[in-house]
Nucleic acid binder design. Structure first.
Lengths: 236, 236
DNA sequence: TGTACATCAGTGAACGCGCGTTCACTGATGTAC
DNA sequence: TGTACATCAGTGAACGCGCGTTCACTGATGTAC
């Protein structure tokens, strides 16, 4: 009985996976706003109402795609990091940035789904917070390891005035939860670099560098090394 | 005759302006994807087909809104700059950044229209390039003035390896066109800071700082002063 | 100044389209005795 | 092992909706003589 019941469940998870795959294809081709249950059903040779056996609404399907996108990006970043020695902090940060950029260029609509303007009429549920954090943790990991290994030389930002107390409190509550041993200043720099990365990737992706910093690799490399120097990441 | 003809023309430009105003309202409320000719016509008490006397298609209306948005942002930045002495380079950069952020928070959908993910099915025509450049020129102006006044101290980035030759060539072709006297390195830093700014604003606007850097002002201030130090902008 | 004509803004109906979601149904798969 | 019943995936028609765009039209405004 258990084995047979399993068969039905297996069918269910398989169809669910196929729906997600088709939805991902639709998303990749037409973007989030163009993603429709009917189109997904069509691609699968099903009738649109059949999808409601698997997803209670279009929004739930969108949520699933968002979770997938964060996961896919985080996986890409983690895979890139895995190819670099854990002690090579500087290179580790750089390959993570490059992986994010490469992923974004390869999956522009998925990138737009998670870091672009929100889909109209859709409100991201709380479940998306944790997978979103996974991406940021990639970068946090690097600076935490570097900090633990005393591989954060006093970067140029070190000589600057102390952090505003309000900012320091916010940062401390982040470190308390995720990275107890990272100094607040380093965390602030990490957020700074992360913002810079996403800004650069968005501008490139949406065509704002066409005609000036185009192709964008040289500027991207320059910007990343600037960030890495700012944070003060060194090799060992 | 001329005066009477003017009357008709004046009516035309007035209605055109009203359509744009209504479209802007729609955009502000429902976002670009939710902007529909019919809704605009409805708000004006017109019949939807009447709009075709003024805009040949929805895309043309969208283009007009995009041009307006760039203009509105550039105006906000310019107004902010006007309140600061031309020699106060550092403050001038900072108020420009703050103006961009404030404008974005006040006009999220217009910001999304120009710096967010592209509207599906819409391809920005060439006319949008020049007004987009106006925004970037706000920042270029600051560093150009600062450079001309020898107010760019050797920032921390100065000790770094020289720019890649490909990047330098790209930057030179930008300076050739817009700011002959800005060193390439400074221009690169300007692009870096601009990307950082937009990344930060996008992340804040789309909720990625909720629960960590929230409220975002303290981090914003920190990030901006970091950038300003990086570029090496000083007061005089 | 008055009349015939041209221009043009706005109307209203219609086109064909695609969408999300509901609902009563069929028929196969699984379950209990 | 066989039979009566329950579950559940998938169907197909229908709902009400809003969209962009076209088109023949009316009637007011402007123009030429």
């Amino acid at each position: 009985m258990a084995a047979i019941r399993m068969a039905r469940e297996r069918a269910r998870t398989e169809v669910t996976a196929e729906i997600l795959r088709a939805a991902r294809d639709q998303l990749a081709e037409h973007g989030a706003a163009g993603l429709s249950l009917r189109a997904v059903a069509r691609e699968l040779g099903m009738v649109s109402s059949a999808l409601y056996r698997y997803f209670p609404s279009r929004d739930e399907l969108l949520t699933a795609l968002i979770l997938e996108a964060y996961g896919s990006l985080a996986d890409a970043g983690a895979a890139a990091q895995a190819r670099v020695g854990r002690a090579e902090h500087r290179r580790r940060w750089l390959v993570t940035c490059r992986a994010v950029r490469r992923w974004a260029l390869a999956h522009p609509h998925e990138y737009a789904l998670i870091y672009g303007s929100p889909v109209p009429g859709y409100l991201a549920p709380k479940e998306t917070i944790e997978p979103a954090a996974r991406v940021m943790l990639l970068f946090l990991d690097v600076v935490r390891d570097a900090g633990a290994a005393q591989a954060l030389i006093a970067g140029p930002a070190q000589g600057r005035p102390p952090l505003a107390s309000r900012l320091e409190a916010q940062l401390r509550s982040v470190t308390d939860e995720f990275a107890a041993d990272v100094p607040e200043l380093v965390l602030a720099q990490m957020f700074y670099g992360f913002s810079q990365l996403l800004g650069m990737v968005s501008l490139e992706l949406y065509g704002h560098f066409v005609g000036s910093l185009d192709p964008t690799e040289p500027f991207f490399d320059y910007a990343m090394s600037t960030t890495v120097d700012l944070i003060g990441l060194t090799a060992s």
